[in-house]
Amino acid sequence: MSRLRTLFLLPLLASLGSCSMVVLNPAGDVAEQQRDLLMVSTALMLIVIIPVMALTIFFAWRYRQSNREARYEPDWDHSTHLELVIWAVPLLIIICLGAVTWMGTHLLDPYRPIGRVAAGKPLPPDVRPLEVEVVALDWKWLFIYPEYGVAVVNELAAPVDRPISFRITSASVMNSFYIPALAGQIYAMPGMETRLHAVINKSGDYEGFSANYSGAGFSGMRFAFHGLDDAGFQAWIAKAKDSGGKLDRNGYLELEQPSENQPVRHYAAVDS
Rank of each mutant, 00 (worst) to 15 (best):
D205Y: 10
A118P: 00
T105C: 08
I50F: 15
W236K: 09
V23H: 13
Y252N: 09
A60L: 07
T105G: 09
E260G: 04
T105S: 14
L16V: 06
A136P: 02
L182V: 05
R128G: 00
Y206S: 12
I47A: 15
K140N: 07
A43W: 14
G98F: 11
D77M: 05
A14S: 11
V100Y: 05
A268M: 04
M39T: 06
E69R: 14
L182G: 06
S243I: 00
D230H: 05
N67W: 04
A136L: 03
L247P: 03
E193A: 07
I95L: 13
K140E: 02
W87N: 11
V153W: 09
F218H: 15
E147C: 05
I93C: 08
F177Y: 15
Y72T: 04
Y187T: 05
S170T: 08
F59A: 08
S176D: 15
V153Q: 13
A43M: 12
I49A: 15
L228E: 01
T80G: 15
L24G: 13
P26N: 14
G217D: 01
S18Y: 10
M45I: 06
P263E: 01
E32H: 08
I168L: 09
L44W: 08
G115E: 06
P122F: 10
Y148N: 10
L228T: 01
D229F: 03
E256T: 00
G220C: 09
D161S: 09
E73Q: 11
M189R: 15
A157W: 02
F143K: 13
P113C: 00
F59L: 07
A99I: 10
R167W: 01
A157R: 05
F225W: 12
S203W: 03
G215S: 12
G28M: 10
R112L: 06
P263T: 01
E73G: 00
A181G: 13
I168R: 10
T80C: 08
Y178T: 01
M174G: 08
G215L: 06
F209Q: 07
R162I: 05
S214N: 12
S66K: 07
L137R: 08
P180H: 04
T80W: 13
G28E: 11
G184F: 04
D109M: 03
R35S: 12
H266Q: 05
D229G: 06
F223L: 10
H197T: 06
I144W: 01
V270A: 05
V135W: 04
M21F: 15
L123C: 06
P90D: 01
D242Q: 12
Y148Q: 14
G208S: 04
G191A: 05
L142R: 13
W236I: 02
E155G: 06
L130C: 04
T105L: 07
M192F: 09
I50C: 14
E69L: 10
E131K: 11
V132I: 14
A27T: 12
V127M: 11
P163K: 05
F209L: 11
A60S: 12
A231Q: 13
A31P: 14
S210Y: 03
D229L: 03
V160W: 07
E193Y: 10
E260S: 04
R68T: 03
H226Y: 10
H78K: 13
A224S: 14
M1T: 14
M189D: 15
F209C: 02
N25Q: 15
D271E: 12
P124M: 00
E260K: 12
E256Y: 02
I49R: 12
G104Q: 09
F8M: 13
P263D: 00
